[in-house]
Amino acid sequence: MYTQMVDVEAAGAASDEQRRFDEKLDRGVTIEPKDWMPEAYRKTLVRQISQHAHSEIVGMLPEGNWITRAPSLERKLILLAKVQDEAGHGLYLYSAAETLGVARDELTEALLSGRAKYSSIFNYPTLTWADVGAIGWLVDGAAIINQIPLTRCSYGPYARAMTRICKEESFHQRQGFDVMVKLCAGTAPQKAMAQDALDRWWWPAVMMFGPPDSASPNSEQSMHWKIKLFSNDELRQRFIDQTAPQADALGLVIPDCELRWNEARGHYDFGAVDWDEFYRVVRGDGPCNRDRLRARVDAWEEGAWVREAALAHAEKRTRRA
């Protein structure tokens, strides 16, 4: 396999290959699947891309929870299309990871066994219809901010997958905001539902950008490799600056009493994030970690006979031909 080839090459010709690799990064030339790359770059990419893919797949669950209860037929269609897009995004990303020499079932296995991580936000429950709006508005909003820079990342297949994904994401954010608009313009219980959703989703969304730069040891290397283009704190600030006025427009209150515009900085100041909660959820003790994983394991295990049958049939057809 390709990984072993790299190891062999790395021993002898590393410096020359490394020089050419670095030069490509400097010139902004994308790295492609069959190009030489440092093993650490490959490993980091596999981890990053597959975590992203897992997040899309697990991310189908909290919103999928509301497909059967969407309060209008149009909303049902939009939500179906949105969750379907997430399956598509997961698929594009797994494909990108597969170009690095790992099979999708290996990545799936890592997710199902609990070894692989995915975005912590999907370990929170969706309790009301407004949560569908809040997720689209906040979570997809945060995702876009995270993902747009990645369309220019150094690894070609990843950058191309992200380009496709970002095109589709903007629809996700808009439909979520539109749910919130309708609720906020509706009856008192509808508006209360919207505020309650914002109260519960705000901080987990702020945490989506990951730990503060001071506690993010791998960032510098990833930025050198151009598979991370802005720091966690930069992106977080961008998200808050962009979202605070949107909340104002909806007439909703962001649950942070320290949130205010700082004229001198040209940014919003905001309160302290509860990083203990973040690490607790990442480690597996969020409200829904076990349920989410269980749902994925069930789908995979209950589908095993179907996948096996399709292969068996394909083999029979080949034999007959």
Partner: peptide, 12 residues
């Protein structure tokens, strides 16, 4: 990577 029983053969 070792495969356990869960990872049945994936489709090509």
């Amino acid at each position: 990577m070792p495969k356990n029983a869960r990872a049945v053969r994936d489709w090509p």
